[in-house]
Amino acid sequence: MLKVLRDLFRHNREFAAGSILVLIVLGIVVASFFSPYPPLDSYVVPPDIPPSWDHLLGTNSRGQDVFWQVAVAMRNSLLFGISVALISRVIALVIGLVSGYVGGMVDRVLMSINDTFVVIPLFPILTLFYFMMHDHMSWVVLAVAMASLGWPYDARLIRSIALSLRNREFTTQSIFSGMSTRQILMEEHLPYVLPIVFSTTLNNINWSIGLEVTLSVIGLTNIETPTIGTMIYWANQHTAMVAGIWWWVLAPVATVIMMFIGLFLLSVSMNEFIDPRTRLARMGA
């Protein structure tokens, strides 16, 4: 695996650029653990100071240091994105693989559920969800809600691969070797879909962070938790742009864009590596 990463870094410009961007963001995230100020406290520093040596990205109108706020917010947003992506990937994998392999009635039922989820309009549902949950809204609840809406496209994709794998001779070979359905799915078919899933996971992280930002900016999440979205929300509440506190908005936006571009480049550069032919060629086939 390390060798793969090294080769990718050397020979693939998108991968190199993408990983540098992601590493910068990760650096900021790690730094958040060493924050000199408790992230939820306000008025710990003088408000509205422009970027300077003392406060790299300035301070905001609530008396918080913008750099350390961004660090914590990015950490939460990223954690949120990863959780959504992982949960929805598990759902997509289970549904896609089972549907494709078992086929028949199971497939038809699972796919009609799948298609129902595809056509559900996300934004109104999540808005409704917020009004239902209201005070109980935490990022964990939101993550689960978004994960259960974010899997269907991937499940379709995985199913189509599983469908073709089912008719391959090696699947019959596995059946006649006495392997159980679980074994065939986990050990024979999963390796074929994992690389693709890996690439869509990166995109899904982007998607969920983006959606979280959208919801937060209009205040439809728990605004107490600092995330990139809630940071922009608070900046808007204090009319930061009108007041000329541009760094309060620019810092989170720039960071999250860096993250977006980084993850996107990584997922693009993965494509070449994902191709099973490339993998086999590397194995020396």
């Binding site: 391959r168 001779e169 090696f170 070979q173 596995s174 006649f176 070797s177 006495g178 392997m179 074994q183 050990e187 024979e188 390796p191 074929y192 099973p276 993998r279 086999l280 086939a285």
Partner: peptide, 18 residues
């Protein structure tokens, strides 16, 4: 085609034996 190209061949032998 009869063996998964990403897997070692012997696993099918061992699974059958098991």
């Amino acid at each position: 085609e009869a063996f998964n190209p990403l897997k070692r061949v012997d696993r099918y032998l061992f699974a059958s034996a098991y």
